[in-house]
Computed example of a mutant assay.
Amino acid sequence: MAYTLGSTNEGQTRSVGPQHCVTRVELSVTATSLLDRDVASKSDPFCVLFHEVDGNWVELGRTETAVNNLNPVFGVKFQVDYHFEEIQKLRFAMFDEDKCATQLYEHDFLGEFICTLGVIVSNKKLHRPLILANGKPAGKGSIMITAQELSDNRIITLTLSGRKLDKKDFFGKSDPYLEFHKQGEDGKWMLVHRTEVIKNTLDPSWKSFTVPLISLCNGDVDRNIKVLCYDYDNDGGHDFIGEFQTTVTKMSEAQNSVEITRDYTFLDYILGGCQLMFTVGIDFTASNGNPREPSSLHYINPLGSNEYLTAILAVGQIIQDYDTDKMFPALGFGAQLPPDWKVCVYWPCILHAYYTQTHADTQIKL
């Protein structure tokens, strides 16, 4: 049996199925010029990471303590699930360790920094001053947070063929197919992929297929892979033809033409410097109804907002972390604007604000 691995041919579809919306991110923390809370020596800082859950801060983890060090580089990393569509608020708090303390608040507070995970990953490396609990700058001390994606998004494409396989059918040849299994930590074999069946042949060539490397061998190129070959039978009693065991490393050595590529995720683009721009378009046509009536989308409840403002806020709070200038153009369309009252296809909403301020008795006609 022969096998080759490599990149797909030009024009060939390379699909490994839907990607997960959650990506694991590793956060590394360093600090500089921290406050010195000790008398006979320097501070012994450690960092605690909290995330916000229903308005409360919940601890996610702690670094090790850097003894007698005002410029610590912490070896312990924080791992967080990244959800683009959510506002994930994080709090990095620095403390000077007191060996007699049994509660976190008993350690000397050195300062903190609060932001969203979106801000961190959009900057890749974030350097900010520490703030005291009362909101005032700590005066000394800053924190640097670096984000790195942990997900193994390497993919591998295999093209396999067989030669002179055993004849298992009485009135024909064989109908061979392959099964790929990886070995789990418990030593048991788990099915990873099954090829299509090639009818009536002893020299099959199966279609190229692409799988995530983490699915094939848990991302370990030296982990054993078992390949089984069967003759397909309609009654389910498939005849065993043969098997072999190999690894990605061995297959690479055998063919000398292996290329493992990456299936880029959304976070890869963000960490690579991609920015998102947010532009708002608001419908001012009469289809929205009288803005003075509660049934209108433009109606602003004295006790709240309206559906437009709610939608803009929900989207804007997410997108703002990935936009450097934090400027969001807002355009309106479908209204008659002063002074000539002609229907305007679109206009910057700042004009609405201008006319509202300078012509208190002037209103846009729907």
Results as ranks from 00 to 15, higher is better:
R292M: 11
F170E: 15
A335E: 03
H20Q: 14
C47H: 01
F78Y: 08
S287F: 03
G184L: 15
V121Q: 01
L228S: 07
K77L: 14
A314T: 12
I241Q: 10
K326G: 09
H238K: 05
N71F: 11
E243V: 00
S43A: 09
S208M: 05
G237S: 14
G135E: 04
T23M: 08
T358F: 14
A335D: 05
E149L: 12
A311R: 10
D203E: 11
G332C: 06
G219I: 00
H83P: 00
L126V: 02
K140T: 03
V227W: 08
S41H: 11
G289M: 02
K42G: 05
F266S: 09
L130C: 04
T261C: 08
L158K: 02
D263R: 03
C344K: 11
M251A: 07
V58D: 08
A66V: 01
N68V: 04
T324V: 15
E59L: 11
Y3P: 00
Y82P: 04
W189Y: 06
F46Q: 02
V16M: 09
Y232L: 02
F333V: 03
C274Y: 10
W206F: 12
D340M: 13
D108A: 14
A40E: 13
G272I: 09
L5D: 09
N290P: 03
V345I: 12
V25P: 05
S174D: 08
V221C: 13
E97Y: 10
K136A: 13
L228G: 00
E149A: 15
T249N: 14
L213P: 00
A31Q: 02
E106I: 10
G135F: 02
E196V: 01
S33M: 08
N134M: 11
E307Q: 09
E243A: 10
S28L: 10
D166F: 10
L132W: 09
H181M: 13
D54V: 09
L216Q: 00
N134H: 10
H193R: 00
L228F: 07
Q317T: 14
I318D: 06
I131V: 15
M251R: 02
T358L: 15
S208L: 01
L309Y: 06
T30C: 06
N301P: 08
C115F: 11
R292S: 14
H238R: 03
N153P: 05
K188Y: 12
T195M: 05
T358W: 11
N288Y: 00
T246E: 04
R262K: 01
Y105Q: 14
N123E: 12
G334M: 07
P18V: 14
K77Y: 11
V53P: 03
I282M: 12
